[in-house]
Amino acid sequence: MSATGIGPDRNSPGQHASRLCGKAFGAVMNVPEVPMRWAQSRLSGGRLGWLFVAPNLAVFALFSFLPVVIDIWFAVTGGSELLPQDRPYVGANNFSDLLTCGNYTDPNSCVRDLFWYGVWNTLEFVVIQVALMLGFSLLTAVVLNRKIVGRGFFRAVFFYPVLLSPVVVALIWKWILQRNGVANAAMEGLGAKPVEWLLNGTWAFSWTVFVSIWAHMGFYTLILLAGLQAIPADIYEAASMDAAPPWRVFRRLTLPLLMPSLIVVFVLGLIRAVQIFDEVYVLTGGGPGTATVYLVQYIYTTGFAQSVRQYGLASAASLLLAGVLLVLTLIQLRGMRSGERG
């Protein structure tokens, strides 16, 4: 208290110390002022902004832009040498090798048949997986948005697989689905014949779709759930006063208002599906035969897992994949912007 007893004593040791700390803090915070004033005087117009973003740009250049440049160099060079200077220039040979086919729908007629197996498998996977993922995520989000018993528990259950590492997810399912796995043991226990879950091409492909949906659905459900909860409740109240049937409410109100979230989920899911690799590589290794070889696995195998590494082919394939992903990202950005405007 002060000597008058009204406010704090300005001369107490505590106040003195806090004033000193304040001054010290101010002095430290003012340190950048001198160089900043100097920079302001020298860098006119918008040039000062470049100074601020320079560290970020340097990091971006080093870890994002430079690898792309190196990737392009590898794509136009051949041989099996790793060091860029040791690689002979081959121009567009790697691209033409990848893209030469007698009939594009028959991988066996292509110079690089495994690349085309990867392309077609990936395309099939993307169409089926994204459609199912979107449908199941939407259904789950709508159900979890209702006032049901144990809603918090079910939300946690659906989100839990997202927390697992893809390798762990794949190992769990491999343990279940392999020839002597849990699923077949259960079937034999029930007197049924074991099924070649991962030995039959159709089954193996279906399981890669299922496992991928199981592992990632929780994340997309969460986005859609947030979108659903952002829809104002009074709109539904108005619809209920008009005695609108539930399906019509869903189709005419919920879906249009959820569209921005749906677009985000669709494009994120699409990009993730095109990049599918880790879970499938551990679960099936691309087998049986090439039934579950996807594009990223082709790139990895060609570049890193063969006795003779064909870095040029792998880089060319990765650039083609990057082109596809770039288009998808632009669609996502456009969708998000139109969502913001809407």
Partner: peptide, 29 residues
């Protein structure tokens, strides 16, 4: 791949031949 029903034996022979040729070419470009 033949066992998985994706190639015939003759196609596999052709592919083995071209894969070997391809590898050897990559070693000595």
């Amino acid at each position: 791949q033949v066992m998985a029903g994706q190639l015939t034996l003759d196609q596999a022979y052709d592919r083995i031949t071209s894969d070997v040729k391809d590898s050897m070419a990559a070693i000595k470009p």
